[in-house]
Design a protein around this nucleic acid. Structure first.
Lengths: 204, 204
DNA sequence: CTAGGTAACTTGACATTGTCAAGATGAATG
DNA sequence: CATTCATCTTGACAATGTCAAGTTACCTAG
């Protein structure tokens, strides 16, 4: 019985066909909505109309699934940052401002994904794949190159070792984002003021 | 049977006597060792020699227990910071340096407790008690007063609003600590160099 | 076109978790 | 001495991640 819908390689039938992508899409939505903690593997499978353990044929375990989500998060971020940087109409200072603002907005608008990308779940204990490590490393390399660029154009202090300075500036961005996301900097709707202060305190 | 050891108000017998404090002590050890995630309420109870649900007569739930641990973490930190600040032999700049170094060391040496104190578990969704909020607020107030002090003595930029500057400087500290703790700034054994860079990039 | 191999999927099962409800205990108070 | 009430225990439930053993159906070799 149930030999209907055979040729159609989409949602119906025993073999789903595009389960991996569907899972990723749905999981990303769920994580964005309620976080990684409350993402249930079983619920995820069933919400797609597949059994509770079907995912394990596409992802080794929950961590593996989260890694994949994080990786696409890095892609999204890289896309945003490329757009910000390639705006040739603006001054260097304006680009720096856009970068800072863009970073904070990305992190707060995708809070749970951001938490995933730069949180302990994937990075502690070497838990993440080589591929993810590379993607993330590229992201930091980009921040590093921007730091060098702004040192050269006199916006950032050029007496300091670039690598170490990049660690500090990224730390500043990351710390502020985390404090906002985690509910400690509660009433910070006005990002612009925050950006002003970051620039005022770090620009040379 | 087993009516022995009646008068002694310590570990033996049906009523433990000092269960709350014992739990707090043991739970703190466990959290410090393996984190809040893997702290099991049942295992905690049984490790102390009490049934798996005995804790629920002293803490409303796991979150409540974690709050108590965090609160004592704030006390520890406040004690450290008091010591650092009250050192009258040092220059203001040296005190700032000690403060930064002390912050990073405290956070990395008590990584899981730090995560608890300033992480989403307790602060998102108003999850923490009024008492904890006050304790934490005092901690930020202290950082704020230090910021004002260093602005006055010309170490930090005094053109910027103190509150906003304090938010940024704390963000820097917090971000760097998180990146170290979470395994992203992997090889950062040399804290001194990091402290140097923080000072170089933020000191006016 | 068919046989069989294999990837994709399901059901059943297990251990672990937080937490509640109902009962047992015993220290303190009248 | 009797009673009350905080303290503690046992039993239970639902949810979770994940494994092992079966089932299904697509694909490819003959």
């Amino acid at each position: 019985m149930a030999k209907v819908v055979k040729k159609i390689k989409t949602n119906a039938g025993y073999h789903h066909g595009e389960l991996r992508e569907t899972l990723l899409k749905e999981a990303t939505l769920m994580v964005n909505a309620t976080g990684t903690q409350s993402l249930s593997m079983r619920a995820l499978g069933e919400s797609i109309g597949v059994s509770r353990t079907a995912l394990y044929h596409h992802f080794k375990n929950k961590n593996d699934l989260l890694s994949a989500i994080a990786e696409s998060g890095f892609d999204t971020w890289q896309g945003l940052v490329d757009k910000i940087i390639s705006n040739n109409d603006s001054s260097e200072q304006q680009i720096l401002r856009n970068y800072i603002k863009g970073y904070i907005e990305f992190s707060t608008e995708n809070a749970f994904i951001y938490e995933l990308m730069f949180g302990s779940a994937l990075w502690k204990e070497q838990a993440s794949s080589e591929s993810l490590k590379n993607t993330a490393y590229k992201s930091f390399q980009f921040h590093l190159s921007l730091t060098a660029r702004w040192q050269k154009s006199g916006i950032l202090n050029s007496d300091v070792d670039t690598l170490r300075l990049a660690q500090v500036t990224w730390g500043t961005l990351h710390g502020i984002c985390k404090l906002i996301i985690d509910g400690i900097y509660a009433d910070n709707k006005n990002i612009d003021h925050l950006v002003d202060t970051i620039i005022a305190s770090q620009v040379h």
